[in-house]
């Protein structure tokens, strides 16, 4: 499984480094979301700083859909789809490989978005550890759920509209838990980050397990 996962992840990351979709499309989109929200909330900094954790995760969530659609468009042609199946790649390995590639792309995006938040909103960091923990856990969870739903809709004609409809409601626990933990780590509220981080852990573990078990049967659907 791990051999196939590394092969798929290496291939996807190499393609991403050549096509630069994250840098050229996803990052500007995420920064645009931050800027538009800043305009919408007005010149008063207090509501802006309070909304910063939620805005960060909304930007990440929307960008995740870009990453998922891009990832599954790589094998959209019949020839490549067939070749992956005929190569005998372990479906669980394929799932983990896609997950790793999407998560690494989101990681780059989150760094750029976090820098944007600090510069644009003047956010004050209280606990780097909490912020990093929630980013890592939330990213893995989003990538795992996104890979599952991306595979589910990849063969459908209406995949571009179906993916947000299926994925966004499912990803709402990450949005909520990520926002709450960031409130603790960024603004320094009295909210404890621990229970929210545990929700992120549970979400990630659940979708990784579901993906490993169900990806093979989904492939043959």
């Amino acid at each position: 499984m791990w051999r196939d996962a590394l092969l798929i992840a290496g291939k996807d990351i190499r393609i991403e480094m050549r096509s630069k979709v994250v840098i050229n499309q996803m990052a500007p989109f995420a920064l645009l979301v931050l800027i538009l929200f800043a305009f919408a909330l007005g010149p008063d900094r207090t509501p802006l700083i309070n909304a910063t954790p939620g805005l960060f995760w909304v930007a990440v969530l929307f960008s995740t859909m870009f990453a998922i659609q891009r990832s599954f468009s790589l094998e959209a042609s019949e020839g490549l789809h067939d070749s992956i199946i005929l190569a005998g790649i372990d479906p669980a390995g394929f799932f983990i490989g896609k997950l790793l590639a999407i998560a690494s792309e989101l990681g780059v995006l989150e760094i750029l978005t976090a820098v944007g938040i600090i510069i644009l909103y003047g956010a004050h960091i209280v606990s780097v550890l909490v912020l990093l923990s929630s980013c890592v856990l939330g990213t893995i969870g989003l990538a795992a759920a996104g890979t599952m739903y991306g595979a589910l809709v990849s063969g459908m004609r209406l995949r571009e509209t179906l993916l947000p409809l299926l994925f966004l409601p499912v990803a709402s626990p990450v949005l909520i838990a990520g926002t709450r933990s960031w409130q603790s780590g960024l603004v320094g509220s009295h909210v404890s980050a621990a229970p929210w981080l545990w929700i992120l852990v549970a979400f990630a573990v659940l979708y990784i397990c579901v993906g490993i078990v169900l990806y093979g049967p989904m492939e043959d659907m």
């Binding site: 291939k11 393609i15 050549r18 042609s77 020839g79 490549l80 067939d82």
Partner: peptide
Amino acid sequence: SVALYDEL
């Protein structure tokens, strides 16, 4: 349809 990745 040939099984090739355009970016590779």
